[in-house]
Design a binder for these strands. Structure first.
Length: 725
DNA sequence: CTGGAGGATCTTTTT
DNA sequence: GATCCTCCAG
């Protein structure tokens, strides 16, 4: 079957194969049967994936509609679509390409009834989910302090990640949560809503209950492709396994060393046991790295080698040369750290590096603050990647709630969100009364409210409700006649929502009005309001100023998949990275996931990677003393230079290796003159510390000293940083 | 019903 | 230190 005309075929030819190395080529051409591609960082994974898709389509193995390709983010899906189209020389429309969630929605809209939903069901996000759980806890008279909605939500979500419906949950450990789970699902069904986990779970239920539906999808999808397989959870794994029973042509791509989402239910086990799950699987390793210098690669590999239970890969490169060793730079406090990185950035910029090729990666969101302040002071343009998404903003969520209610008159969560926003004099007690009424009558909250408003009795709240429903009905009646953009404008105006922000004198009010305008603009691109609502809850991204030349600031998690010439890895201290909570929750496995995070961080760098730590950090309140992260010691000495806050080099580079300074180390020219302190101390020794002055050693714990400073109190300090007085 | 005071909490994040 | 939530007085 030739899908392309003869001449097109010869034009495109198979040129796209010739630029691949041999494992890459194997990964593209092994189209039949289960395939696992272990793709290390920077080994051209995306290229292989897109080429494979294009290859399948171009050789006529399948029509686009017979190909299923799953990614983790919408961004990745978008990018893949573009690149495949580029390779094909035409659009690849018709392919089932998207995130697990969006593909599941596509299926569920068609078979909603089979899982007790209507086809126009609402997709709830985390916020709605929490709100709903709170309501249930309140109604069940459960003490929120003992059982926080957050905890229960996470227990339920983990169950859903593991593909467990409330009937399948084993009783015992979390009986309370299990009961709530059932109540929660009942409420969702009344609301005609599904949360993110449900999208997959309902699909599984559908496949189980309606084998003929499953069968039709099995025979439809001749080729299946999954990106970031190490991040799939059990539910997603089951979903894939069911669908793959038809063609068996399932190709999973991933890197066990980059699995960093265990805390939200991802199962590294999925990738580790692929060969067992899919007998006869071909395993292909992509190990040639095209991104980083060998020092960077060596440092990253050396770090990750401390993890047990890996599939094992040996990354190598002959492309980028040895490069510079990593610089590990200690600083006194988080302010110093920001100052140091700011200076380095300016220095690199003077050497002609563009800001967009630099990134600062941090473990936790709060760390970006100090950098932002510093960059504002220095006038360095920056962007923070991640953080609040557009549709997560308060005003956007409010506006969307109005629209949701317009389209789904029974959406109680949307109703509750906006019934008193702007203020209409409908407060907590009224809402509670409505809840009681809704329960008694077995109807939705908005329906109960309408019933309540239309009953004979007078009262301010009743009148306000009546007015609200009159407005709603009027707007709804316009849905068929007016363009939907107009309706949105009318709703926001006539509800008084816009006015509310116009009259708000707080500093962020103008920005919120801007966002509302942007929302209206976004809606214009959609033919139907329901379609837009789904787009917003599932897909909509921050349209960031991606093109501009700015320093990138983000967490290690959001850095996965990206690359930069220069990467600053800030805050490598015990107590922050590895994050104590991670180890507290998951012990050794948690520590290993943190280490993978470090691996991801280092391997983002093409040319240089700079790790910083500080000895004093502003945490929740006040200052906290810290010591360098254990991961620093795990990086092989030959791939790094470690300079402590004193400006003294701590490790010794072996033999011939020389190092070009990355920037000008103004303060460190005396590195080799200053004796590196490797003193041994005894309790009672008088010491001197660069920053805290004179003090006395009162406790020794390995290389850490507890020192009573004459003027700065008690501090734990690494022995390297103090001298005998 | 509203607004302000006081208290608890603060890892990572996509859908 | 900041933000979000709860509780209580008006």
């Amino acid at each position: 079957m030739a899908l392309l005309a003869e001449n097109e075929m010869s034009d495109a030819g198979f040129d796209y194969l010739s630029s691949l190395n041999s494992p890459q080529r194997l990964a593209v051409e092994t189209t039949e049967g289960p395939v696992l591609i272990l793709a290390g960082a920077g080994t051209g994974k995306t290229r292989v994936l897109t080429t494979r898709l294009a290859h399948i389509l171009m050789t006529g193995l399948a029509y686009p509609g017979e190909v299923l390709a799953v990614t983790f983010t919408n961004k990745a899906a978008q990018e893949m679509k573009g690149r495949v189209a580029h390779l094909l020389g035409r659009s690849a429309d018709g392919m089932w390409l998207g995130t697990f969630h969006s593909l599941c929605v596509r299926i569920l809209r068609r078979y909603a009834e089979a899982v007790g939903l209507q086809s126009n069901f609402t997709i709830l996000d985390t916020d709605d989910q929490l709100r709903l759980l709170k309501q249930i806890l309140k109604a069940e008279n459960i003490d929120e302090k003992q059982h926080s909605p957050k905890m229960i939500a996470s227990v339920i979500n983990r169950w859903k990640d593991r593909g467990l419906t409330h009937n399948q949950v084993k009783r015992g450990e979390h009986d309370l949560a299990a009961n709530i789970y059932q109540l929660y699902q009942e409420r969702l069904s009344i609301l005609n809503a599904a949360d993110f986990g449900d999208l997959l779970l309902h699909c599984l239920t559908l496949f189980k209950n309606q084998p003929e539906v499953l069968k039709s999808y099995q025979s439809q999808f001749k080729y299946m492709l999954v990106d970031e397989y190490q991040d799939t959870n059990v539910a997603q794994y089951l979903w894939l396994r069911l669908l793959a029973q038809g063609s068996h042509n399932l190709c999973c791509v991933g890197d066990d060393d980059q699995s960093i989402y265990g805390w939200r239910g991802a199962e590294v086990g999925n990738i580790l046991k692929f060969e067992k799950d899919f007998p006869g699987a071909t395993v292909i390793r992509l190990e040639q790295n095209y991104r980083s210098t060998s020092h960077i690669l060596g440092a990253a590999s050396g770090l990750i080698a401390h993890n047990a239970g890996r599939l094992g890969k040996t990354l190598w490169t002959d492309e980028k040369g040895e490069g510079e060793p990593l610089l590990i730079r200690g600083t006194w406090d988080s302010g110093d750290e920001a100052r140091f990185i700011g200076d380095e950035i300016e220095s690199l910029q003077r050497q002609g590096e563009s800001l967009g090729e630099m990134a600062i990666l941090v473990r936790a969101g709060f760390q970006t603050r100090e950098f932002e302040e510093r960059f504002l002071k220095l006038g360095i343009p920056y962007r923070v990647i991640g953080g609040l998404r557009f549709y997560e903003r308060l005003e956007i969520r409010d506006a969307l709630a109005y629209l949701r209610l317009l389209i789904q008159p029974d959406d109680g969560l949307a109703f509750e969100r906006i019934i008193n926003t702007p203020r209409r004099g409908i407060g907590e007690s009224t809402i509670q009364a409505l809840h009681v009424l809704a329960r008694e009558q077995g109807i939705s909250l908005p329906r109960a409210a309408r019933y309540y408003a239309e009953s004979e009795t007078k009262g301010a709240a009743r009148l306000a409700l009546r007015k609200f429903f009159e407005d709603m009905d009027r707007w709804r009646s316009m849905l068929d006649t007016e363009p939907h953009v107009e309706i949105v404008k009318i709703v926001l105006d006539e509800s008084g929502y816009t006015t509310m922000w116009q009259e708000d004198k707080s500093a962020d009010a103008p920005g919120r009005l801007e966002n509302l305008k942007e929302l209206v603009l976004a809606i214009e691109e959609f033919q139907f309001l329901p379609g837009f609502l789904e787009h917003v809850s599932l897909v909509m991204d921050n349209n960031q100023q991606a093109k501009e030349d700015m320093v990138n600031l983000m967490t290690l998690h959001s850095a996965k998949g990206l690359e930069f010439n220069t990467v600053f890895l800030a805050g490598w201290e015990e107590g922050l990275f590895p994050h104590p909570k991670s180890m507290q929750d998951s012990g050794q496995a948690g520590l290993e996931e943190e280490r993978r995070l470090g691996y991801v961080g280092i391997s983002r760098a093409k040319k240089r990677s700079i790790i910083t730590y500080c000895l004093q950090r502003r945490m929740h309140k006040g200052w906290q003393t810290a010591i360098p992260s254990r991961f620093i010691k795990e990086i092989p000495n030959k791939h790094m230079i470690h300079i402590n806050p004193n400006g003294a080099e701590v490790n010794r580079l072996g033999g011939t290796s020389s190092r070009t300074p990355i920037a000008d180390f103004r303060n460190f020219k005396d590195i080799y003159e200053k004796p590196v302190s490797f003193h041994t101390f005894e309790i009672g020794d008088r010491i001197f510390h660069q920053k805290f002055g004179y003090g006395e050693v009162i406790e020794i714990d390995g290389d850490k000293l507890n020192i009573e400073f004459d003027h700065s109190g008690n501090k734990k300090i690494i022995a390297d940083f103090v001298n005998k007085a």
